[in-house]
Amino acid sequence: MIWLNHGKIRSIIDGKGDRCVNIRIEWLYKAKNGAETLFHSAPLPAAQVLMLVEDVMQTGRVKNIVLTDAYDSTWTLKELKKYVQEVASEPQNITIYFDGGFQQNTKTAGLGYVVYFEQDGKAYRMRKNAFVEGLISNNEAEYAALHLSIRELEELNVHHATVHFKGDSQVVIRQMAGDWPAYEKELAAWANKIDKRLEKLHITPMYEHVSRKQNEEADRLATQALNGITIDGRKELQ
């Protein structure tokens, strides 16, 4: 028997809740000799939960399966299947690498970002850059690159999701993660703008500082933008 709390489940299935759902599994297992024990899983992605539940049900020794999300709402197997089918057509497992380059003598900047995501069972990579004027520092260029990548998420119709942002700027990553304060008014303005855009999309950001080598794709895109080379590409990954 799988229990259901209708109120919260309906809001999630209708797209009003968090689209990046992790679910805990609880089930009662009965051995051949009649011994019974209760199992609990860690929170797992919805698609993985569906696969595991369908697998253990085939043993014939499992009963009282309860599926619970982070909001303590319980799911039926039917609701879970519907949810997994719906989110399969939306971008998911999204990671963004971003970088900004700045030339002090010309006050020009190059912005670059790479978006990795999955959709309809396939993996993709998007690479884009932009040349901009009017910024005053390399840190501001880094913020502008991050902001531009979030505008890309809007184009992809990403919402109610967790997105991993990776960059080699300690300043931007630490300030956006809340570890460091943003004293400069220009940087604080960018941070506020980014927070508001993410909030509007109901995106939960996960910020990670990486080395320049790990961020070389985005760095190359930013340099190419400064050199007048525009990149705008999308590729399916094998």
Rank of each mutant, 00 (worst) to 15 (best):
Q58F: 04
N227E: 14
L146V: 12
A145C: 03
I12Q: 11
T59A: 07
Q170E: 07
A145F: 00
A189P: 08
A218N: 06
E186S: 15
R197L: 15
V53C: 04
I203D: 04
R220K: 13
T37P: 12
Y143Q: 05
N93D: 14
E86A: 13
I65A: 07
M1G: 14
W180P: 10
M57L: 12
M51I: 15
A188W: 02
V62S: 06
A130V: 12
A144K: 01
I2R: 05
A141T: 03
G17D: 10
D168F: 03
C20H: 06
V84T: 12
A123C: 14
D179F: 04
E155V: 05
P43D: 04
L28S: 02
T230V: 14
K8D: 14
H40R: 07
E236C: 06
E154P: 05
L221W: 01
H160G: 08
D14M: 01
D168T: 09
Y97G: 08
K185V: 15
T108C: 05
L221A: 04
R151D: 12
A88E: 13
G167W: 05
T68R: 01
S41F: 08
N192W: 10
A42V: 11
D168N: 03
F117E: 07
I12P: 09
V210P: 08
M51P: 12
K78G: 13
Q103A: 06
C20S: 08
I173L: 09
F117A: 08
T106L: 01
A145R: 00
E208S: 14
E184H: 13
A31I: 07
I136V: 10
Q119C: 01
N227L: 10
L198K: 02
N215E: 11
T74G: 06
R61K: 04
R10L: 12
N227H: 12
Q119K: 06
Q58W: 09
Q170F: 00
L187G: 05
R10E: 15
A109H: 02
K193C: 14
A130R: 08
K193W: 08
D99P: 12
A225R: 00
A42D: 11
E199M: 14
A47D: 14
Y83H: 10
A182M: 06
N129C: 07
G112D: 02
K128F: 09
E199G: 15
N215G: 13
